[in-house]
């Protein structure tokens, strides 16, 4: 039974997807929390779109973008990078679907940071980047961690977009969620139940860790 391979593959791709969404996610969260600019509402809506759009629809849009003849896929193909129906597609689907949760929760974290700390840091000679790295980000950390874990958890359970651009190839793109569906569909109910149990344990561990970290951060500050 390839249960360990599926579990390992899902956790690894979800972790990679979380790392991938952190830089743009934190930038977007900070931008939405701290800056007033034209098109802010539009950006906010675009970022949150995967939350409300059917995941399969998001998957289809992604497929059109990264397919070998799509605008992004074409460029990647010329560079020798194949995305569709590979593990990279799994990571991409996970990252796009997890990003809204990361951005929304981190943004709330940034909004809770009192402007006065940033203002005082600036009078002490710290430029915008140093203020962000030494004041804003550490003080927003509970929100950022909570957002990362939510994004990671969302990535773990990703199904709709994954099935569209990565499919369910055993040993290559099959994640827990996709495998549960495939097993149940082919009558392997016991295997499906095993994977449900594994999913529950991972989700429980991830959320527990997040709450523990948040509680520790709360005690320290």
């Amino acid at each position: 039974m390839d249960i360990w391979h599926i579990t390992w593959f899902t956790v690894a791709t979800a972790a990679f997807a979380t790392l991938l969404m952190l830089p743009p996610g934190l930038f977007l969260a900070w931008l939405l929390a701290r800056r007033q600019f034209r098109g802010r509402v539009l950006l906010e809506t675009l970022v949150s779109l995967p939350l409300v759009l059917p995941p399969v629809a998001t998957g289809l849009l992604l497929l059109m973008l990264v397919a070998p003849r799509g605008p992004i896929g074409g460029v990647l193909e010329r560079a020798g990078i194949e995305v569709v129906f590979t593990w990279k597609a799994v990571v991409l689907a996970m990252a796009v679907m997890g990003l809204p949760l990361l951005v929304r929760t981190s943004r709330a974290g940034f909004e809770q940071v009192d402007h006065r700390y940033e203002a005082v840091a600036a009078t002490l000679g710290a430029g915008p980047l140093r203020v962000f790295l030494t004041i804003t980000l550490p003080l927003a950390l509970p929100g950022v961690i909570a957002g990362s874990v939510l994004g990671f958890a969302r990535a773990l359970g990703e199904f709709g977009a994954t099935i569209m651009i990565a499919g369910s190839i055993p040993g290559a793109t099959r994640t827990l969620a996709v495998a549960i569906y495939s097993f149940a569909e082919t009558g392997r109910d016991a295997d499906a139940m095993h994977l449900v149990l594994v999913s529950a344990v991972i989700a429980f561990a991830a959320l527990g860790t997040a709450n523990w970290i948040a509680a520790r951060a709360g005690v320290r500050s």
Partner: peptide
């Protein structure tokens, strides 16, 4: 000039020590 270019020390009313 931006605050970080001014070289002015400012102790605000609430002191705002960095809590972390």
């Amino acid at each position: 000039l931006a605050p970080y270019e001014r070289h002015i020390g400012y102790v605000t009313q609430d002191v705002a020590l960095f809590p972390h």
